[in-house]
């Protein structure tokens, strides 16, 4: 494709129209309202569905929802997640859920906030929340462990409570 160069008129070739229009544009913008946001004081309203940092959540009964199935670890594209499974020791406190991670690490330096972990989680235990500016003074500090993730994640209202329901059913059927 050949774009024909527009032949400039005598007036245009004097360069004055360019100066005038350049001046008009710059003046208009000079007095326009500024779009800069004064960041630490002013902040964006984080929209619904924003994919910020992934954190672990507890349900309304304060139970850690993660059961250490390691699907997120498997699906995580940058391998940011590392789960330490609980091992064979029977933990009475977990009840019929049987399993809870011994440790859950997310390397926030590696995380790409893709949301696969949230999508794959069969227990709705991990959610990409609204935090977007994570800071730390060392690489170690940027690896978030289970306690920190749970603290930051907060509570998630679970409408199904499948484990509690199972437990209830089992009790009703006389199985402790």
């Amino acid at each position: 494709m050949i774009v024909q160069r527009k032949e400039l008129s005598w007036w245009e070739r004097l360069y004055i129209p360019a100066i005038i229009s350049g001046f008009r544009v710059t003046v208009r913008h000079f007095f326009k309202k500024k779009v800069t946001m004064q960041y630490p004081e002013e902040r964006w309203v984080v929209p619904e569905g924003y994919r910020g940092a992934p954190y672990l959540v507890k349900d309304q009964d304060a139970r850690t929802k993660c059961v250490s199935c390691q699907l997120c670890e498997f699906v995580c594209p940058p391998k940011a997640i590392k789960i330490t499974p609980p091992g064979p020791k029977v933990n009475k406190s977990t009840g019929n859920v049987e399993k809870e991670p011994a440790d859950f690490e997310i390397n926030m330096l590696r995380c790409i906030f893709c949301g696969f972990c949230q999508e794959v989680c069969p227990e709705e235990a991990i959610f990409l929340q609204k935090d977007y500016s994570l800071t730390g003074e060392s690489r170690e500090e940027m690896i978030y462990h289970k306690d920190k993730l749970l603290e930051l994640g907060g509570t998630h209202q679970d409408d199904i409570m499948k484990w509690a329901k199972k437990n209830q059913e089992a009790k009703a059927q006389g199985i402790a």
């Binding site: 000079f30 779009v35 800069t36």
Partner: peptide
Amino acid sequence: RISAAIQDRI
């Protein structure tokens, strides 16, 4: 500052 203002910045 002037450059910023012309570019709608602060």
